[in-house]
Nucleic acid binder design. Structure first.
Lengths: 214, 214
DNA sequence: AGCTTTCGCTACGGGTCGTAGCGTAACTGG
DNA sequence: CCAGTTACGCTACGACCCGTAGCGAAAGCT
């Protein structure tokens, strides 16, 4: 658990006055995840979350602007669990993070919420920024760490051009995250060790090599 | 326009009696896409679609079970536009289909709807099957066609094992579709020729080669 | 014709939304 | 300790959308 603090729902707290209950925050986010699992995104109501969390509905509206924002915060916490343990080789590192990511996407609250908020973000600019800041961009650290390690091992060449290196990292990130999400949620087939192995092989050596090896 | 007929909303039509208006079907699906663009998935109401289409709300409910099913049908039509023109090489073919797919995902009705119905499908088994049948599986033809052509050109080896070949096709499909969707909708950055070129290079030659070439 | 199915329309109870208003609780600075 | 400030729980509200039922009229088939 890396436990990077999420930004609080509301920015500041002027001194003086009753402070916001941190316990209520935690209870609300946990309740959100529970309700998400039980009745899904579209039928989730803020009233139900409030009841489940044991707080008044108005309290919930004072802290979050709407359903989307609440769910983003509720799910973002889970993504910080991802890590990149050193498994000795670039291939092993990639397989490891793929399986870890798949495990995360296998949790019902994650799979339901992630796609839903992304969908909503296509017509909601502020929400898109919130998602990127809270979820997506935070995980690029995994790609950067993996590359750094691979370069130290001599598996990848050092990159002189910083701009090009950043673009490559973005590309890798989209390919890995995109492929796993598509396999798990759209194709709805298992992301198991077999698949992770084949995917890693493809990513490292390319299509021609992968087709030849089978 | 390949125009593969979609399955009708309701299975049979017993002989005798007034037939269902095909014009109403078309008007409803078109209206659905329009409303989707204007107010987004979460705020889309079936009443609004019915009004826009010029039909009674009850007519809409007689044909579709709910919002998700309606939107799947409304969007599925658009995906049949994808084609794979022969551009002379595997790399060019891939770049072409990537850009074509990106163009499709750039349309507001597509980007909004696709993620939303996938999200809904994570807690709705019948819906997931409908999506796979109407949208996802139909596009695997592109991967199969591309491979066949590449093998004819001698760019890829022939595959003796049919099962393994099918698994590889599924893998390629998840990687291409996943990466483009993730880039376009999650990272929300442009899928332009530059990106398509770099992605194709990565897919064909692998990470090490891609990093070296920059 | 007569039969069958669809269509448009109206109306309904039930649920959720997001907000307002009020009295109370919690914490801070003088 | 007390006044000031903010958060909380609760209740109530109009507005909207849901999904269905019931009706008479329209449009086909045999």
């Amino acid at each position: 658990m890396v436990a990077g603090m999420q930004s609080p729902p509301t920015p500041a707290h002027r001194p003086g006055g009753r402070p916001r209950s941190a316990a209520a925050d935690a209870a609300i986010l946990e309740a959100t995840r529970q309700v998400l699992v039980e009745i899904g995104w579209s039928k989730l109501t803020l009233g139900a979350v409030a009841t489940r969390a044991g707080v008044a509905k108005t309290t919930l509206y004072r802290r979050w602007a709407g359903k989307s924002e609440l769910v983003v915060d509720a799910v973002a916490e889970l993504f910080d669990e991802l890590e990149l343990p050193d498994r000795g080789s670039l291939a092993a590192d990639i397989e490891g993070v793929v399986l870890q990511f798949a495990l995360l996407l296998g949790r019902p609250e994650t799979k339901t919420a992630l796609m839903a908020v992304v969908a909503e973000s296509t017509t909601d600019e502020p929400l898109r920024h919130r998602i990127r800041a809270s979820i997506v961009d935070r995980q690029k650290r995994l790609v950067l760490a993996g590359r750094e390690r691979a370069q130290a091992r001599g598996e990848l060449p050092a990159e002189p051009d910083g701009v090009a290196a950043a673009r490559t990292a973005d590309l890798i990130f989209d390919v890995i995250a995109g492929a796993v999400v598509h396999r798990a949620l759209v194709s709805a087939e298992p992301v198991d060790e077999e698949w992770a192995r084949r995917f890693t092989l493809l990513l490292l050596d390319g299509l021609a090599a992968a087709a030849a090896t089978q």
